[in-house]
Design a protein around this nucleic acid. Sequence first.
DNA 1: CAAGTGATTAGC
DNA 2: CTAATCACTTGC
Length: 170
Amino acid sequence: MPDSNGKRVSGKIVEVEAYRGPEDRASHAYGGRRTKRTETMYRTGGVAYVYFVYGMYYQFNVVSNVGDVPHAILVRALEPVEGIETMRERRHSHPDHNLTNGPGKLCIAMGIDRQLDGADLLGDRVWIEEYESVSTRRIAKGPRIGIDYAEAWIDKPWRFWIKNNSYVSR
DNA sequence: CAAGTGATTAGC
DNA sequence: CTAATCACTTGC
């Protein structure tokens, strides 16, 4: 995405989690919950779902299904590609591998906030484009993070990351 | 390991 | 209206 000076700030997605609509206890849309916040997830795929948690962090998701089916992919970590100086300023003086290796951190580094909630991911405010292909052998999977309340859904292996990539979150 | 932070939600 | 919760990060 462009920064305030029009320069590009970008990263390769190296870690994601899937959140599966009404039946997934861990999802904000569990049970079909449809509120002002979750409304974005019910849109047709290809838009951003951005929300605020823990009083200080944003999370960036990609809405991923047809309209009225609230599925989304949480982007948990990026490997910085462009605009790394901007990221360093925003995350002041953290080592580079710590710039974007978590869902809240990457939003700070990229400059993502609520204004991007519902943004078209093929638009010009924020977008996703093809960068390089990753063979399935290099992708690992495991349980999701931070959803201890999700009961039977806790152990679903819906977190995916690129093996041996140092920008994957802890 | 625990606190911090405030929007969001559910429950009166 | 009020209280509890939270798809996290940082600094003890």
